[in-house]
């Protein structure tokens, strides 16, 4: 392997690493925005139909206000399970099973969980 070749390889690797890092942060920020958007949009999460959320208007009163979520759900997984299918914990919960019925796909669900958990 010639020196020039190995340098170019290294450069490429560095460049790739850098772009991955860059992509990583931008995707994270995007995920945040995405989670909020998904949570607010009528055809997706539509959380506001039933829950008060800071930053949203005309919220419904069917479910509890979504505040201080980490106190209520110290574990993210427990919150995720609740959004996945709330009737597991409470068979009479009117909340749609967002995961079980694929109202949101896996990625969308994770983005919504991230957004809600940080409220």
């Amino acid at each position: 392997m010639s020196i020039s070749k190995s340098t170019s390889l290294m450069r490429k690797t560095l460049l790739a690493a850098a772009s991955v890092a860059l992509l990583g942060t931008s995707q994270l920020a995007l995920a945040d925005e995405n989670g909020k958007e998904l949570a607010f949009t009528r055809k997706k999460g539509n959380c506001l139909a039933c829950h008060m959320i800071s930053g949203g208007s005309n919220a419904g009163t069917i479910g509890p206000a979504l505040i201080d979520m980490k106190a209520r759900f110290p574990k993210r997984d427990v919150l995720k399970a609740q959004i996945w299918d709330a009737t597991v914990n409470n068979p009479e919960s009117p909340m749609p099973p967002f995961g079980k019925h694929k109202i949101l796909n896996d990625k969308e669900l994770d983005a919504v969980v991230d957004f809600i958990w940080n409220l």
Partner: peptide, 14 residues
């Protein structure tokens, strides 16, 4: 019943 018994009187959006 989810809406018109259990949650009658509640707001769904506005």
């Amino acid at each position: 019943a989810s809406c018109h018994m259990q949650n009658s009187g509640n707001y769904i959006r506005s």
